[in-house]
Each structure stands twice: as C-alpha cells, then as structure tokens.
Design a protein around this nucleic acid. Structure first.
Lengths: 139, 139
DNA sequence: TTAATAACCTACTAACCCGATAGGGTAATG
DNA sequence: CATTACCCTATCGGGTTAGTAGGTTATTAA
C-alpha cells in the first residue's frame, strides 16, 4: 500500500510540473487544490527539496519549483525517496536490501523468486513513467 | 511491503505442497522447518483453512493438507486472502475498491492512471504463478 | 477408556508506524 | 519593518503487526 505521504508527494510534484512557466508554487495553494493537510504537505515538500527534486524560495511570491525537467524525473526515484523500497520484501530490494531472519538461504526460499518477478515488473512500469507522463494524462 | 503473515502463509503452503503424497503436515513441523513462531503460524493456517485452501485433521497423525492441486492455486488468490488488496491504492483495487477522500475525480488524478499500470503488471505476475511454480523452483 | 496429540479458539500486549497537529523560527520581499 | 511563506522540532492518537498466553475440542492409539 502506498502511503498518503507518497501519494500526496506525487500529486504535489505533478501539480507543480503542470504550472505554466517556472514560477514558484506555494504549499498553501497545493494543499487547497489537492485537499491535503497543509502542515503535512509542508513536511513532504521539505523532504522533496532536501532530496533534490524541488527548489524553494522564501518570502512573498515564494514557493516551490522543480529543479529538473519533468521528463527527467522517473517515478522510481520519487517513490524510493518518499516510500522507501519498491520491492514487497526487503530481501529482493535493490536499494534497501535486508536479509531475512527466518530464511536460511534465498535460493531455497519459495517466496524469493516470485518477489523478484513482481519487483522487476513494477520497476519496469515505474521506471518507464516520468513526471511528465502524469501531467500529460491529466490533460 | 508484504506482511510476515502473508510471507509465512505462502511458505507454509509451499511446504505442504512439497510433501510427497497427501499426508497431513503438522503446524509444529512447518514452524520448525521454516523458523516461524508456532502460535502465529497456527492462526495463519487456520485462516487458510477457513478460506478453503487447506483441510485439517485433528489428533495424532493429524495436520494440514492441500484441498486443491498446487497447479490450481494462483498466487493472487493466496495474497488476496492473507494480505488483502494487491493494488497500491484502494481506488484502483478490483477486489477491495475504495474511493479516495482527497481526489475529486479519478480521471484527473495523476496517481490513478499510474497505479492502474502497476496493478496490472503485478496482477499478471501473480496470476501467472501458481503454488506449483514455487515448489518447482525450490528443487 | 484413557492418555496423548494436534488442531482450534479467545484474549491480550508490546512495539511500531502513519497521518496529522501544534507552535513556533527563519529568511526574503515590498 | 511588517508580511509572507518556507523551515524545523516535538508530540500524539489511532491503528496495525507480530507475537504470546492459556486454554478447549476432537481424534487417535495404547
């Protein structure tokens, strides 16, 4: 299950990407438009800024803006930052690998091979889609 | 993320499917072999019995056994029972659909279309794999 | 018939995480 | 210098997860 945090983060990024020009978008505006708790959204935007997706500008007329082009931002990157691992099990995660306590070996684990298949198919979809694709579909 | 419950459940089913013949397998044996808390496993096996995957026999020589052939048990069915929805978001779930509170319409939601793609690719993998496939890979 | 076995059932709990709220501080603009 | 809007920390209720505890019931073998 996708957390609200990730969902809100994606929606916010899409909202910003959708704006004409490169003018900063305020958190309050996004919160209003997308029905998100403003404070909660602020913390998400902050995280997206710290991880290099967004730039920010303080004061009047300030807000958040994309640093890279929407076409360059893969959904895998966004989700990994906000949600964490894409895999359903840590033992098949590429970026957040963790060994299982209960499994003696990954070769004999019946779940392992299956979860690799799921991971790869999900990765394909999320890697093929960029932020630009989300915006296009919206119009 | 897959819960331990689901993971243990799949492993247990694979363990039972792997047994030669149709003799019942005891929960204690599965728990020992797979390093699972026995009591926790019992509750999972019980659920799998109630949902029609397993039969059981009490008393000495008792245990759990598969009701259907491993080839007939799709991974989607197992996961839906133990884990719940396969989709990452309730608003694209086929079996556990729920409307989003924050979204005004699903057509304009930037997340929606993406999550349908993820759902379909995951569904393909889990629908193509049966319990029999897990056992084969183990050998 | 009785003892052992193993499934079945109910209740509880510690730990954890999520989503949100509270209450500010800091920097930039006009 | 006042307003704006980002920035930061702390906290918290509610829910879920993974497990533990302590039994009851049904079946089988001695």
């Amino acid at each position: 299950m996708l957390s609200k945090k990730t969902k809100y983060g994606i929606k916010a990024l899409a909202f910003i990407a959708k704006q004409p020009g490169k003018i900063p978008v305020q958190a309050s505006e996004i919160a209003r438009s997308e029905n998100i708790s403003q404070k909660f959204l602020e913390s998400i935007l902050l995280e997206l800024r710290k991880s290099g997706f967004l730039g920010s500008k303080k004061g009047k007329g300030g807000g958040y803006y994309l640093i890279k082009e929407p076409e360059e931002i893969r959904m895998t990157a966004i989700i990994r930052v906000l949600e964490g691992p894409i895999s359903m099990v840590p033992c098949v995660s590429l970026n957040y690998y963790e060994k299982c306590e209960d499994c003696e070996s990954e070769e004999t684990c019946s779940v392992h091979a299956l979860m690799i298949q799921v991971r790869d198919s999900t990765l394909k979809v999320l890697g093929d889609n960029t932020l630009a694709d989300l915006v296009i579909e919206e119009e």
